[in-house]
Amino acid sequence: MNFWVLQTLNGISFGMLLFLLASGLSLIYGLMKILNLAHGSFYLLGGYAGLVVVQKTGSFVLAVFVATLAIVVIGVLMERFLLRRLHLQEMPQTLLTFGFLFIFSDLAMLIWGSNPETVPKPEMFSQSVQIAGFIYPSYRLFIIGFGLVVALLLWWIQDGTRIGAMIRAGVDNEEIARSLGINVSLLFTLVFALGAFLAALGGVMGGPIMGVFPGADFEVLLLGFVVVIIGGLGSLKGALIGGLIVGLLDNFGKVFFPEFALFTIFAPMALILAVRPTGLFGRE
């Protein structure tokens, strides 16, 4: 019994981290049709920036703010000055972000060296808690709660606010949205910034569990894509459900078939692609 609760919690907490990563990827693609490969870099740089702030000030909350702000600035600059010039040219845009992935990866190694680092946990959640006879790290429980709050917030922005309505309009039909007086150009920047924010948030929040190190950007990007492919590109609900599915599959896969750890993620992905090429919640 304990075993199942423990493993399920593990899977959900990892799934929530994956959701943070995948939601930004998904949002940006949904509106702008940009496959942002530099998303992994946003995660990595966010993690490193968070690490620096925690080491300097000791405050995890401040680290979240500073790191996400810094990455949002980078994201906005990228969108305004570079990606914008290649609007709707999918291939050149993807290649551009691919280039950035490499540049940021080398820059990070130049600045922070190549030793693995772990972001220290916030003081409040540095202990493990005892629930019904087993020990569980409280930080992971916090991640689950935090992920849910972010999901609810994003939902509310998408479905309950004017901005959200404009984004949905932009996703459905960019030209008609423009003709109705919606500033789609501003919306693009906003969504790209939001995506960068979520990736950086994933970097700081995931830093204490997954660590930040050279190559983390590529690892995270791969997992993010699996989530988005399962959940459906452009769908928030898809990112959440996809994240949880991948988190749980990964966890139970490792427990029951340790030799096929990656297989238990990629086989369901292939299956879903075969049955529903747009993912579980993607639209035609």
Binding site: N10, E219, V220, N251, P258
Partner: peptide
């Protein structure tokens, strides 16, 4: 004996076994 892949992001499932 457990053999996770190189660069596994989350070791929790192995550790808790």
């Amino acid at each position: 004996a457990m053999f996770p892949n190189v660069g596994t992001s989350d070791y929790a499932p192995y550790v808790t076994k």
